[in-house]
Design a protein around this nucleic acid. Structure first.
Length: 712
DNA sequence: AATGTGTTCTTTTTT
DNA sequence: AGAACACATT
């Protein structure tokens, strides 16, 4: 591998001497390349063995790409090279050291997703006889998560007020429930890894010895627990290579702590620092606009981003009438871009909240324009997929009561709430978990059980099925897909979904997609498969080179780039989000600005900025104010205004065929900009027309990104 | 136990 | 506006 194509700064980072290295990397400065080349440099020039390197990326996609690139460029055996997200890395370590997890956990533990988490918190509230109205699941969950992010266990939790006291108790009970189910939530993966290393100095020493080089991407978005983990793995004089950009820190709400940077500087005062300021992604115009926006933040170190490309085109800024019109304008702009040689795959539409995708999707479906949606209703959180997944999870981990509860009456077996409670109580009295109880019923013919009649017969049948699946899964020749096929056939799931309805057919399609994912992971043990499924992020499945527009949140856009970017919904209350405006912490508003900055800097060539005059939220239509951030973009970088009138004229014809657009009667002077036009009042009856949607949103729009997991 | 009706909350952002 | 949930009815 040659390092000739690197600029001076990049080369300095890649070939930095051992010890601690901090790379401050502005957007588009080639930080992923630097990270990859650094690993290549270690492997090739420093003769470091692959298994001595651990790299932590922000997404699985980034990890996959990094590994592929290394494989491609080096052609070496990379076995043992650890590349993955914090969560995946921790999960792997925890399983490897499964014995040290006892007695709370076995290495077969499952990962609880957000839905499971919710159920568990509710269970905890119920167990503690707390009023779920007063102490909401959401508040409890975020309190628990916040504690885990700063390495606080229930025992360490210091409550300062009433709510804190309750959170402490719920947290404690919640952990008991998770442990009883042999389950960890996302935060636990990190927390438990730290605890494991803390409690087992020998294991900690083993890994510290093994991983001589640790590299961390997106360091600005690590939390305290993650920093602690890094410290345990790296130690005082170790080799730690971090890459980050404080201007792109957008995960404070998830516990990311910018002070980790100060901690790093304190812990590694001798660290080499490299600044990457040359930008290879965007035009100077885009960069200048972004810089003007981010400069308004206080307490930041200014960077001068130099574009290595020309000035490019001006930004375009437009006001739409409402979200439907906004989507319509995006579509029109998109069409003209495509006429001018752009591919739909070059284009991304970004927004602050997932809910905003809806208006866009409707317009795109109506226009029959393909798109792929990142996030939103996640594939793995669809009912049918969750059902099937729950079957596998029970087989993997019989302790998982939540999954058993989910499937015991799906498809309908006539096992209702009463029978379920009966089973639980009876099993508990025998010292079993419910699944164990069922298996015992299937095995011991004369077992005395408190059921009779229909309930007994149904339970028995289900118990025998379970036993059969367990036996099947024990055989090494059984693949996950085999197991899945057997289960689907045994429960006649296709029939349950209803083949003859559109909805049923679509759901079944999703199940089959899921089966495909399982089939790809052919020789993978069930536990690994379930882990992969639990840890895939929405962006992970984003394929390049497809000919569909990508729709995604600003958060999900981090680390990505597109030739053309549309930013929509740039209004007060959306971006910046109303929550940040209500907050008394000015950092929240600063983070919203950074989020906008991230969005702006995703664009390579063209940038389109939209806001709407009015917007409908929660069924309420309100007038809006353009985002304060828009005013920070110098007007000489914006060229959209002058062309707006002209463009609208061209689009007016097709508007009449667009049934659910805004009613043109509201603004008969369609040639002018919307602003001077007499604006219909929000409550005017003309607006009510929107009630009848031309195309009701079809469940599960067809172009959703499908998270196909691929082996590295 | 399954189905129907009314009420309440939701929307920040995600591994 | 829609989903999720609690409660009531078949």
């Amino acid at each position: 591998m040659s390092f000739e194509n690197l600029n001076e700064q990049q080369l300095a980072a890649v070939t930095a001497p051992p010890g601690a290295v901090m790379v401050v990397a502005g957007p588009g400065s080639g930080k992923t390349r630097v990270l990859t080349q650094r690993i290549a440099y270690l492997l090739q020039e420093q003769n470091v063995a692959p298994w001595r390197i651990m790299a932590v990326t922000f997404t699985n996609k980034a990890a996959r790409e990094m590994r592929e690139r290394l494989q491609h460029e080096l052609g070496e055996d990379l076995r043992g090279l650890s590349v993955g997200t914090f969560h995946a890395t921790c999960a792997r370590l925890l399983r490897r050291e499964g014995d040290a997890l006892a007695p709370q956990y076995t290495r077969d533990f499952v990962i609880f997703d957000t839905d499971d988490q919710k159920s568990a918190v509710k269970q905890a509230l119920e167990d503690l006889n707390l009023d779920p109205k007063k102490f909401t699941e959401g508040r409890m969950s975020s309190g628990i998560s916040a504690a885990k992010n700063v390495l606080i266990t229930p025992a360490d939790y210091q409550a300062t007020d009433h709510v804190g006291e309750v959170i402490k108790r719920v947290y404690a009970r919640y952990q008991e429930i998770l442990q009883a189910n042999n389950a960890m939530d996302f935060d636990d993966l990190l927390l438990n890894t730290v605890l494991l290393l803390q409690r087992n100095p020998l294991i900690a020493e083993k890994y510290r010895q093994q991983y001589q080089h640790v590299l961390i991407d997106e360091f600005q978005d690590t939390n305290l627990t993650q920093y602690n983990l890094i410290r345990r793995l790296v130690g005082e004089g170790g080799n730690l290579f971090i890459v980050g950009d404080t201007d792109q820190s957008i995960y404070k709400w998830r516990g990311a702590d910018i002070r980790n940077l100060q901690r790093f500087q304190q812990d590694y005062p001798e660290a080499t620092t490299v600044l990457l300021e040359e930008n290879y992604r965007s035009t100077q115009t885009i960069l200048d606009a972004a810089t003007a926006v981010i400069r308004r933040n206080r307490n930041r170190v200014d960077k001068s981003l130099r574009a290595m490309r020309g000035h490019g085109e001006l930004l375009k800024m437009e006001e739409a009438y409402n979200e439907g019109d906004e989507a319509y304008r995006v579509l029109n702009e998109l069409r003209s871009l495509m006429v001018n040689g752009y591919n739909a795959g070059d284009v991304a539409i970004m927004y602050r909240t997932n809910a905003q995708s809806r208006a866009l999707e409707e317009a795109f479906i109506r226009a029959q324009m393909p798109y792929k949606l990142v996030g939103g209703l996640r594939f793995y959180s669809r009912k049918e997929v969750k059902d099937v997944l729950a079957y596998l999870r029970v087989i993997q981990n019989p302790a998982d009561e939540f999954s058993l509860y989910r499937i015991i009456n799906v498809p309908k077996r006539g096992i209702g709430a009463k029978t379920w409670e009966g089973l639980r109580a009876w099993a508990q009295a025998q010292g079993w978990q419910p699944t164990q109880g069922l298996l015992q019923m299937a095995e011991q013919t004369g077992l005395a059980v408190p059921f009779s009649g229909r309930a007994l017969a149904q339970l028995m049948q289900f118990a025998h099925q379970l036993r059969h699946w367990f036996a099947l899964s024990q055989r090494t020749s059984t693949t996950v897909a085999d197991l899945l096929d057997t289960i689907l056939k045994d429960i006649d799931y296709k029939n349950y979904l209803g083949e003859d309805t559109d909805e049923g057919a679509e759901r079944w399609e999703n199940v089959m997609e899921f089966r495909n994912v399982a089939a790809v992971a052919d020789d993978m043990p069930l536990s690994d498969f379930l882990e992969e499924v639990a840890l895939v992020a929405d962006v992970d499945s984003l394929e390049e080179g497809s000919s569909a527009v990508t729709m995604l949140t600003l958060h999900a856009s981090k680390g990505l780039e597109f030739p053309v970017v549309f930013l929509v919904g740039l209004e007060e209350g959306i971006l910046p989000h109303s929550r940040s405006l209500q907050s008394d912490d000015p950092e929240d508003l600063a983070e919203e600005r950074r989020l906008f900055y991230v969005g702006l800097t995703r664009a390579k060539d063209r940038l389109f900025l939209y806001h709407s005059f009015q917007r409908t939220n929660w069924g309420q239509t309100n007038a809006t104010t353009p985002s304060r951030f828009l005013a920070d973009i110098p007007s000489e970088m914006v060229g959209g205004l002058a062309q707006a009138g002209q463009r609208r004229q061209a689009t007016k014809q097709s508007m009449s065929s667009w049934s659910s657009g805004w009613n043109p009667s509201g603004g008969s002077s369609g040639n002018s900009r919307p602003s001077p036009v007499p604006r219909p009042q929000p409550n005017q009856h003309g607006n009510r027309k929107r009630k009848s949607r031309a195309t009701p949103r079809k469940r599960g729009a067809p172009k959703r990104v499908f998270p196909v997991w691929r082996r590295p």
